[in-house]
Amino acid sequence: MTFQNELINWYLIHKRDLPWRHTNDAYTIWLSEIILQQTRVEQGLPYFVKFLEHFPTVADFAAATEAKVLKLWQGLGYYSRGRNMHATAKTIMNDFNGIFPTLHDDLIKLKGIGDYTAAAISSFSSGEARAVVDGNVFRVLARYYGIDKPINGPEGKKQFFKLANELLYVAEPALYNQAIMEFGAIQCKPKSPACELCPLNIDCFAYNNNLVKHLPVKLAKAEKKHRYFSYLVLINADKILVKERQAGDIWQHLNDFPCVETGEFSQQSDQILLSTVKENFGNEAQLTLLTATKHVLTHQIIHVRFFAVKNYIFNFNKQKELNWVSFNKLDELPQPNVIRNFITEKFGIDKGVTNLY
């Protein structure tokens, strides 16, 4: 049997029952595709359900506030995806009369939609003959055909996209695309693939040459940048001081606390921290270390400390992005995970403000 037929036959037996596979609605497929970028199905599925419940149509999505979108997105990471989705929903309402496009050439123009996502949506919604190439597809093709060009390099990408389109089963592109992606997700897995049970192992180059662990090849990633955040936690009665993060850095438009960033955590940086606190919150202000943690992002590692600030002055010169909010309001605001986890630990159910000190 052909490579394509083997994949499709395997898929019809082993495919997972996922909700977005029961529709050809482009909006629903778009939701699933964006949510599942850089996200495992097990983690993304509850978000997909939640988003579809809150925004059953693209019009509902476009009408939402960015804060609501980011709050629902909280915990998924890569928050630019949520912001791009919101922008795309508005574009569809304004430029496409509220009708979600189904053709690749229209989709590729939308914010946050690249070649992969445009191919997936067009293939699954309208049957357009476009090959979908994601991490799972890269892996299957690299191993089966023994391709050792880096999948994240320009030559490798060009070779893989060319091969993927040559292999596309044009009679049923949606079925084939789903099949090869699912095969990579649950059969030809990154680690410990079930090679002995694989229907393709007879002709698989990697399996027959003991190269399964070595393919696909990736160019080494740049070393992650380390950053050092000292968060200041100020409480006034039943309110807490929060800061809305601005454009130009991580966590845009999410809410955290006033923060002093230093080059490291050291005696010298602690002096800078204390000096900054006194300058902004009065000479009598005192710091108490509450907890320290580390938050790992794709390109950065954030070292975090939380300090309670006591004896601060109340008439400090407030920046416009600083706001006193009630704890009920705080729960409604979108926050980075590191802040959400701290709040849950310190101010969760049955925990009072007095626990802070």
Rank of each mutant, 00 (worst) to 15 (best):
H22M: 05
I147P: 07
V49N: 12
G135N: 02
T28V: 12
A59F: 11
N84I: 05
I99F: 01
A119H: 03
S125A: 15
R83T: 14
G75W: 04
A87S: 12
V69T: 03
T39H: 03
H54F: 11
K90R: 13
T65N: 10
G146A: 12
G44W: 00
R143G: 04
Y144C: 11
Y145T: 06
S122L: 08
N136K: 06
D148L: 05
A89Y: 07
Y144I: 12
F124G: 02
T91H: 07
K149H: 14
H54G: 00
S80F: 07
E128W: 00
S32R: 02
A59N: 13
E33I: 02
A63I: 11
A131D: 05
G44F: 00
S126D: 13
N84S: 09
R81Q: 11
F138N: 07
G44N: 00
F55C: 14
A119S: 15
P46E: 12
D106A: 14
I99S: 05
W20E: 04
W30E: 05
V41F: 10
D105H: 13
P101S: 03
K111T: 15
T39V: 05
P101C: 01
L107N: 03
L76W: 09
D25H: 01
L141G: 03
T39N: 05
A129M: 03
N97W: 00
S123K: 02
L45E: 11
K71A: 11
T39R: 02
R81Y: 09
H86W: 14
F100H: 06
K111I: 15
I99E: 10
D106K: 15
T23I: 10
K71Q: 14
A63Y: 09
L72V: 11
N97A: 09
P150R: 13
A118G: 08
E128N: 01
T28Y: 08
I34R: 03
F55I: 12
I113P: 10
A59G: 15
G114K: 03
D95Y: 03
F61E: 13
F138M: 04
R83L: 15
T91E: 14
R81N: 11
I151Y: 10
A59T: 15
S125D: 08
V133P: 01
Q38L: 00
N84R: 11
H22Q: 13
S126F: 10
S32Q: 04
Y78N: 09
A59P: 08
F124W: 13
F55Q: 11
A129N: 08
T117A: 06
K149T: 15
A119M: 02
T23L: 07
A87Q: 15
I29G: 03
G44E: 00
I92E: 09
A87P: 00
F48H: 10
F51P: 08
P101E: 04
Y79W: 10
R83Y: 12
W30D: 04
